[in-house]
Design a protein around this nucleic acid. Sequence first.
RNA 1: GGGUGGGUAGCUCAGGUGGUAGAGCAUCGGCCUUUUAAGCCGGUGGUCGAGGGUUCGAGUCCCUCCCCACUCACCA
Length: 525
Amino acid sequence: MFARGRPVRARPRSHGGSLELSDRTGTLLTMEQKQDLYTQRLEKLARIREAGEEPFKYSYPRTHTVEQAYKEYARADGADTSVKLAGRLFALRYHGKSVFGDLCDDSGKIQLFFGLNELGGERFEFLSKLVNIGDFLGVTGNMFTTRTNQVTVKVHDFSLLTKSLRPLPEKWHGLKDVEIRLRQRYLDLLSNESVREIFRKRSHVIRSIREFLDARGYIEVETPMLQPIPGGATARPFVTHHNALDRDLYLRIAPELYLKRLLVGGFEKVYEINRNFRNEGLSQRHNPEFTMLELYHAYVDYESIMELVEQMVNHMVVELTGGHRLVYQGSEINLEPPWPRVAFFDAVREFAGVDIEAVHGADRAHEAVSHLKLELDESAGYGKICDELLKTYVVPKLIAPTFIVDHPAELSPLAKRKRGNQRLTERFQPYIGGLEMGNAFSELNDPQEQRARFEEQMKLRERGDEEAQTLDEDYVTALEYGMPPAAGLGIGVDRLVMLLTDSASIKDVILFPQLRTLADAGTGE
RNA sequence: GGGUGGGUAGCUCAGGUGGUAGAGCAUCGGCCUUUUAAGCCGGUGGUCGAGGGUUCGAGUCCCUCCCCACUCACCA
């Protein structure tokens, strides 16, 4: 379907150089089709210019959006309502000496009526011969109701605002080809209203996170995306290079260590909503760049953050649905606080049937799970085995919102140990709809212990674990100046949006998700 | 990387056991001044993902490769 690997630019063409430029953007049409539909439009373009009309206008003084026009017409209650609207034509229905059209703007769709009597012969001919579905139009007219009771604009005059040179996807079935939907998201957006709705909701969700936190006295900050030492999470980073400094830098895997430096600096409630980058595989739940909310609050522990999370998520659901419930992938979910707290080891015991808490050391842990169908690397440590048990047996069951709390210390090098149980940390993860929504803990602020935990990670790294964390001296120094007791939280915003829009894949909630590049997808030449 | 399904017109899709590639929409021409997936008549448009093989003959069967989705592995 793609004209990959073809010597596109070298192919001789009858219509001159202007066509060749467009090929570099990667056409989805075969050359033959393009010659046809595309050059038809180019010919119209030339005829429009010959007729003295500019096919790419600069502005249009519209008086109403489509939505406003409907409202004003309803308010006018039969009185004359004249409007100037602008939008894209999505349909044209010809009837000899009249034409019906559908005009869409960001607010909705409205029917247009073009009559020969109102427009005059010249403009009517222009419309019939030179305007296509897909073109942007500005129209002046007054509103009326057809005999089939359809509110319509009777057009007295129109202006071609932008000539469209390529045909739109089919109107009835919409655009379904997943690859085109993702690679040419603009086509997906303009032909699938439900997709536009998802991204409106995404915008709404992020706005209400800000409102929620701002109202509670948090300040929003921005910390480096380019970091000399990638810290704050267990993940492989992307590497880049700064020429003037002649050094490698890493795209951040988390803002955590910088945000906690701000606690040292005296801020007490901070948050950041921004992109993280992790050099990992793609899946329904993973995109290499994803949006993370992180926040830190001084003088509280993880219990307070748990309350914040259930309040915040419930707040979003109320904003979007008006209630506490939503449906995610066929399951009804009630987000009303409080959500159950289940200890990590209890959850594993209940769902995997393994009392991993009673087991000590990696070797014993391997024995304890040998009867289960876990595909574990021999080098997996105790923490890794625990994590695998949770992911495999517990997480898929956590449809109703649940906090898994008090993770084994091996899994959490930046978290404080639990009071009364040194094997655990004061950490929690919210799960909803089987999705891991985030991670939070009482923050480790003892610089000596932090250094020791980093050193354990460095040992893992030396043994070949590329995800193990790196010792950040500057961060430890900051802790030595004193960081107040605090708790912090990370929430995967994309996954939250998946939940709130009933989306099965993270690609559905990211406008331009990472895809294999077409250059790499060639025939391997 | 493994498994499953898929790739046919600009878009959405049909094409039993091999026999000259189809429909709807879009597009172009004709008719039609209240239609709304408008209708009617006619036309343009295809390297059937790519290459090789079997065959008198391949969209269809065989082989290799490319791409997409799902899934497993990897992975907060």
